[in-house]
Amino acid sequence: MSQFLQQVINGLSLGSIYALIALGYTMVYGILKLINFAHSEVFMVGAYTGFYTAGALGIEGMEQRGAAFPLYLALVVLMVAMGASALLGVLIERLAYRPVRSAPRLTPLITAIGVSLLLQNLGMLVFTPNPRRYPPIIKEVRFELGGVIVTNVKLTIFVVTLALMLGLWYLVQRTWTGRAMRAVSVNLDAAKLMGIDTGRTISATFAIGSALAAAGGILFGLDQITINPLMGTLTGLKAFVAAVLGGIGNIPGAVVGGLLIGLAEQLVAGYVSPDYRDAITFVILIVILILRPEGILGVVRQEKV
C-alpha cells in the first residue's frame, strides 16, 4: 500500500509539471488553432535561465558553506526565468508565426517545428549538451508518513502548480485581457471588429503560456535533478498529449490531462515495466483520438459554413 501511495505521489508531481507545460499548448491552440512545437524549447530555456540565474546569485558558494538558498532569492530565480521565457515566447510569435498568420494552417505548423529545432541546437551550442545538476534553490527536507516519503520539493511543486493554475483561471475569467482572449478564441475576425487589439491579446497568450512553461522547467529541474538541452523534446511531447487528452483548447482539461499522464506513466513504470513508461503516453493518445477525439473535457464546437 505504501508503495502504491508513493508511486501515486511521484506520478502526481510529474503530472503537475506536465500540466504547467500543457497549459501553454492548449492556450495557444485555443486562440490560434496552432500547435506551438517550440513550446517544449521555451520550457528548456526557462529551466536553463533558472540554472544560470541561481548560479549568478551565488548558489554554489552557499551550498559549499552549507547555507540554504533564501526563499526570496528562489522567487527571484522563478521570476527571472518566467520573464525571460515570456519574452522568448512573444518573440517567437512575432518573428515566426505572425508573418505567416494568413497562410494555410500547415505553414505555421512547419515554422513551429523549425523554431523548435533551431532552439534545440542553439541550446546545445550555448548551454553545451552535457547534463547539469540543477542547483537546489529549495533545500530538500523529507517527511515520512507511514512509509511514504514526501519532500518539500514535491509539496512546492503541488503548491506552485495550484497557485499558477488558480491565477490563470482568474486571469482568463475575471480580467479584460482574459475576456479578450476568450473572444479571440471564438472568432479572431469578429473580435477584431469589436475593437479588440488581437495582436496584443495573442502576444499576451504567448507570454503567459511561456511563463508557465518556465515555472515547469524549474520545477522539473528540482524534481529530476539533472537538465540538458534536449529535455524539452519528450517532456514537451507528453505535455502536448496531456493537452489533447484533456481536450485541446480547454484550460482545466490540460490540468486533468497532465495529472493523468503523470500518474499513468509512473504506475506503468512501477508495476508493469519501466520500458513502457514512454509508450503508455502514446497508447493513451491513440485510444483517445479513436474514442473521444475532443478529449475528456473538450466540447465539439460546431463550425458554421
Partner: peptide, 27 residues
C-alpha cells in the same frame, strides 16, 4: 471539429518526423 482532427493528425505525423530529424543532428 473536422478540421481540428485533421490538423492533429498532421501535427502528430510531423512531430514523429521531427523527432527522427532531431536525433540525426549535423556533423
Amino acid at each position: 471539429m473536422r478540421l481540428d482532427r485533421r490538423s492533429l493528425i498532421i501535427a502528430l505525423a510531423s512531430s514523429t518526423l521531427f523527432g527522427a530529424v532531431a536525433c540525426k543532428g549535423g556533423s
